[in-house]
Structure formats: structure tokens, C-alpha cells
Design a protein around this nucleic acid. Structure first.
Lengths: 179, 179
DNA sequence: GTCTATACCCAGATAGAC
DNA sequence: GTCTATCTGGGTATAGAC
């Protein structure tokens, strides 16, 4: 696959960051173009419309999600540790794209909803394969969603103690195995 | 306090519902007015600007949150049961106002962020007073946030099994008391 | 207290030069 | 591949009638 021009990717990154930081409203083509270091016309060469810009972001998310799930399953600490760790990780490649998508879903872009559903399902399955307990797997993904929701709303590190959560989950799994 | 005219409250409700259903973008003054059964001019009589409309919604949220926390603390099943139950409750008065506020926070209205922080803190304290375990209290509020995030993104009942979550939490608390 | 009409502004999109 | 210039639609807000 031919490497897309740098400006295109820069535009996508700028779009995601503005959506996360200031909301969808603020992510006007003009503002995105400026942040990407091109003009509005230049941006509209790469993406023929705002819809196309959103579609580009969702494609990017799909790619990153696939990688993320593969990493989860391969993580020596386990899928649960991975999902909690990355949920709270400010500064990853994945996070701004995911949170921007949450934002877009709530701004009324229905395609964004579908993308999030797909990610959630993939995560839950990976966690389930590790813990082997449906109820706990659902709860773990819910915790991860809660952490992301905090990041999306407050726009910064969430301050949630991941080690603490992992400890709770380990205790819970142990208690359920015993009973 | 003088009872505000009915049209005002109808406008507020309409605003919240459109924001939840279709996003902030779709909640144009025109659309809100139509849904409330008044004209754009009539709406702008009650709320001099869109900012004022948002402020009105946040005030409403503050009132409802106060009531909700009082109910939590008085709930015979306990604060934890209450927060999980109401998080998943589609059709309450509280839910659309809360989710609309989440949406507005992400659309860039900073005052909405502050309102959400206040609600989260009040909830966590109420839960903590019940369970007496900081880590578990944080996790419970996080689960509730996760449930709300689902409702906000997917716009309907979340399908999370509250009884299941309550069971997990009870098991966890028991395990921690033993150790 | 609510309406209509209208002014204003800005975001999204097009045309065409370079 | 990127630019400038320009059009258009729609959302916010004001003025003033009823």
C-alpha cells in the first residue's frame, strides 16, 4: 500500500486533537487546516468534505484497534492489565483517536457509534479469553469505559490508580474461584 | 420561588432530549423551539442566548443531583444499589439531563465539566460512607460512569445486568473484609 | 409572553489559478 | 498538491409588532 502523503496524516491527527481538546464544533475545517499547517483548500483536496474527514479518522481507529487487540492478547501481563493500563495512558497514539471517536458519536455521527461497538466487542472477547468469567469480563470493560469517559470529559489524565483496580479484580476472581 | 412558565421548562426538556439523541450540533435554537412547541423568538425570550440555555440546563442538573444524592443516602437498599440502578435506568428525569451535560462538556462547554465533577464527587462520597472502602468506592463510581458512557454513546438502554454487578461488588467486599 | 422578519456571521464547499 | 477567492446555507441574535 502506497504511503499516504504526510499532510493527510497530519490533518487527521490535528482533527482528532482539536475534537478531543475543544469539541467537534471547534474542529472547523479552517482550524484543522491551520493546525495541520495547510490551507482550507489544501485540506479539502485530501478530504472532499467533513464527512470524509470523519471517515478517515474512523478508518484510522479501525487500524489502531486491530493492533491494540493483538497487543492485548500478546501482553505478558495479560489482557486485563493491558486494557486498564492503556485506558489510563495519556499520550498514546490510540487514545486521542478513540476519544475523538467517542466525541463524534455523541455529536451525532452514527458511523462513529458502530466503530465504538466493534472495539468494545473485540476488547470484551479478549478479556473473556483471559479471565474465563463472563460477568467479570463485562465489568472490566465497563471499568475501562469509565476511565475513558473521564478522560473524554475532563480531557486529561484521570488519576485512577490502575494497580489498585488490578488488585481488586484479582481479589474478585480469586473469591469467585473459591466459591 | 415563583414557578417558571411552562414553556421555559418545556424548552429545557426539548433541548436536553435533542442533545442526547442527535448531538449538540442538532440542537439549534430553531429545532429546540419547534420541539418545545414555540417559535425561535419565543425561545429567545426565555433564554437570551444559547449560552443561557446551557446555563439553564446546568442549573436543572444541579437541582436534580442534589435530590439524587439525598435519595441515594436514604435508599433502603443502599447507595451502591441506588447508583447502579439509576445509572441504567432509561426513562428517569435525571438521565437525559445528565447525559446531555456529558455531551455539552465534550462539545466544549467548560461549565458543563465543572457540573459533572461536582456530581461525581458527591456520588463517590455517598458510596464511600456506605462501603467504607476507598478503592471499592472509586471502582463503583467508575462502573456507574461506564454505564452512563454506554448510554451516552449508544443512546439507549445499556443492557448491563445490574444485579450481576451488585453481586460482584458484594463478593469483592466480603473478600476484602476477610483478608 | 410570544410572534415574524430580518440582519449578521461563520462554517462548509466550489472554482479555478499556480 | 496546495493555494486564494467566492458562493451558499444555516445558526445566532436583534427589532419591533401583536
Amino acid at each position: 500500500m502506497a504511503r499516504p502523503p504526510a499532510a493527510r496524516q497530519r490533518a487527521l491527527d490535528a482533527f482528532a486533537h482539536i475534537v478531543v481538546r475543544d469539541g467537534e464544533r471547534a474542529a472547523a475545517l479552517e482550524a484543522v487546516a491551520r493546525a495541520a499547517g495547510i490551507s482550507k483548500g489544501g485540506l479539502l483536496y485530501h478530504f472532499g468534505s467533513k464527512e470524509a474527514l470523519v471517515a478517515g479518522l474512523l478508518e484510522h481507529l479501525a487500524r489502531l484497534t486491530e493492533e491494540d487487540v493483538a497487543e492485548m492478547r500478546a501482553d505478558p501481563e495479560g489482557a486485563t492489565a493491558h486494557i486498564l493500563r492503556t485506558s489510563a495512558q495519556f499520550g498514546s497514539d490510540f487514545e486521542p483517536v478513540y476519544i475523538a471517536t467517542v466525541n463524534l458519536a455523541q455529536a451525532g455521527y452514527d458511523e462513529a457509534r458502530a466503530a465504538l461497538r466493534a472495539a468494545d466487542t473485540a476488547w470484551r472477547e479478549a478479556v473473556l479469553d483471559e479471565v474465563g468469567d463472563e460477568a467479570v469480563a463485562r465489568a472490566i470493560v465497563l471499568l475501562s469505559d469509565g476511565i475513558y469517559a473521564h478522560a473524554a470529559v475532563y480531557g486529561g489524565p484521570t488519576g485512577h490508580d490502575i494497580a489498585e483496580l488490578r488488585g481488586l479484580i484479582a481479589q474478585l476472581l480469586a473469591a469467585r474461584r473459591d466459591s
